[in-house]
């Protein structure tokens, strides 16, 4: 599996590099990760970082870093996640501090969702979201995700938003 690079109007979604780790670890060990069941230290952040990367050879999908083309800055990541605890394949996203409010996460998530439906034998994807994470709930709804109260979440309190392949 060659990890893809995707282009949108404003963004490049590209494979993780080792030099992405410091910023990723800052995010994952910060309060911004409070909705991600994380509570990670730097070593735990490495485990998440490398699991994101290893998804590509193991599952044929995974996470990509988000670069803003105009400024050449990396602003977060978007991913298709399965791991060993997710009942279904999840579409997720995370932005570094200071980059919200520009629609970047939506633009990146649309691109990876569309890549997933075009490439993988999946009819639906889900987003597992903490009920208190209002920003991610709005994003899931902007993507057209619909609440699914019948599916099983990895953590009992998570909301599930289901994304369907376009007809």
């Amino acid at each position: 599996m060659i990890t893809p690079t995707l282009h949108t109007d404003r963004l490049t979604l590209r494979p993780y590099r080792l030099d992405d780790f410091d910023a990723y670890a800052v995010l994952m060990t910060s309060d911004r990760a409070k909705y991600m069941q994380a509570g990670l230290d730097r070593e735990g952040a490495w485990n998440w970082f490398t699991a994101d990367v290893a998804h590509w050879p193991l599952f044929g999908f995974g996470s990509l870093m988000i670069d803003v083309d105009a400024v050449g800055e990396t602003i977060g990541a978007v991913g298709l996640n399965k791991g060993i605890n997710f009942p279904e394949t999840e579409l997720g996203w995370q932005l570094y501090d200071g980059y919200e409010g520009h629609g970047y996460a939506t633009e990146a998530a649309v691109a990876l969702r569309d890549w997933g439906f075009a490439t993988l034998p999946l009819e639906t994807l889900v987003s597992y979201i903490d009920p208190a994470n209002a920003a991610s709930i709005r994003l899931a709804e902007r993507l057209g995700g619909k609440r699914d109260t019948s599916a099983i979440p990895p953590y009992p309190c998570d909301l599930i938003y289901r994304h369907r392949r376009a007809a």
């Binding site: 993780y16 080792l18 490495w46 485990n47 490398t50 699991a51 994101d52 990367v53 290893a54 193991l58």
Partner: peptide, 19 residues
């Protein structure tokens, strides 16, 4: 446990791409 196994398994594989 299996969580540690998953972390090590992924870390050791991902390093091909990172290092």
């Amino acid at each position: 446990d299996d969580r540690t196994a998953w972390s090590w398994f992924c870390s050791d594989i991902a390093q091909w791409h990172l290092l």
